[in-house]
Design a protein around this nucleic acid. Structure first.
Lengths: 163, 163
DNA sequence: TCGACTTGGTTGCATGATGCAACCTAGGAC
DNA sequence: GTCCTAGGTTGCATCATGCAACCAAGTCGA
């Protein structure tokens, strides 16, 4: 992207896209949401160039979407966590996920499905539990293997189980 | 964006972003959703470069998100309409709008608010009417001027009233 | 009939973000 | 002393973006 802002557009969609509309940004948020916290984990799970990942993480921290926490001093090592602002992107991610699944379906079905932690019901594209009808937030939901589960998604799942 | 795909990512969010994750794409969808149908209208409402708009419209038509319809033969003139696939992006747009409004608020409040056509209730970030509780779709909602209404949004509103 | 205007683009070119690979730093393991 | 790991940074080639100019084909006004 040449510029990542949309000057002159008085629209909150544009404002949102100025922050998370850059290539990779939303996928990084999703990777962290799935439990990938370290630079190497995120890099490997996405296959993103290291310099670009570095720049995006910096931007996401600056925008208060991610929080950087040291887990070790010597040598300095850190992990990335979602802030409340970052967690609030969950409905948008769920909506995109739903749209993506609807229009680029796989023969075996989705590799992962989102379920309500409390009741185990399937979560729909609006972030609503289909079993109990509750409107959920990021912390209320988790991913579990779906019908299209395969080895390609195993590493993400391993990270997920740690989260 | 150098490439608009995310090779090797077995994730529907990535699949969705391959299609509508390019810079401007989602804003073009939003502009059409608001009633801007012609090349010049969309170009003016977004301030996008004409060649980029041309390329994006082509891509969105190829992806079956927009439909191109001639409204005049000589000279050939056409308008762009959302397909069902395009209309189904509404929940994602609403979620991004909600997030953008929450975290980049304006002093006077949002310039436009989304309301339920049938009952006039305010639509929340999940695309649910706060008054009657119904889960809505693109056709059930419309935009009306909000507290932060100003001259900058008047042209979009004029287009909107035609839709 | 001539020029100006409108709509919907396409083309040429400069800029600069992206991605790959190589390198760096600082500790741990063998 | 050498290799390995984690978390980056740097150099450079490539390619998307944005601006402006141009094109095409009709309409309008005098």
């Amino acid at each position: 992207m040449l510029r990542h802002d949309y000057p002159g557009l008085d629209c909150s969609v544009a404002k949102a896209l100025e922050v998370i509309g850059e290539r990779w940004s939303l996928l990084i948020v999703r990777a962290v949401m799935h439990g990938n916290r370290r630079f190497g984990e995120i890099q490997e799970s996405l296959g993103i160039a290291r310099n670009v990942l570095s720049a995006r993480l910096q931007r996401l921290v600056d925008e208060d979407i991610l929080e950087r926490r040291a887990y070790q001093e010597n040598p300095p090592r850190c992990e990335y966590f979602l802030t409340e602002k970052g967690l609030d992107l969950w409905p948008a991610l769920i909506a995109l996920l739903d749209w993506g699944e609807r229009y680029t379906p796989r023969p075996q079905g989705p590799p992962r499905v989102i379920v309500h932690k409390q009741c185990g019901g399937r979560v729909n594209g609006r972030g609503i539990c289909e079993a109990c009808g509750k409107v959920l937030h990021a912390r209320d939901a988790k991913q579990v293997p779906g019908p299209g589960w395969g080895p390609a998604v195993a590493s993400a799942a391993a990270a997920d189980s740690r989260g």
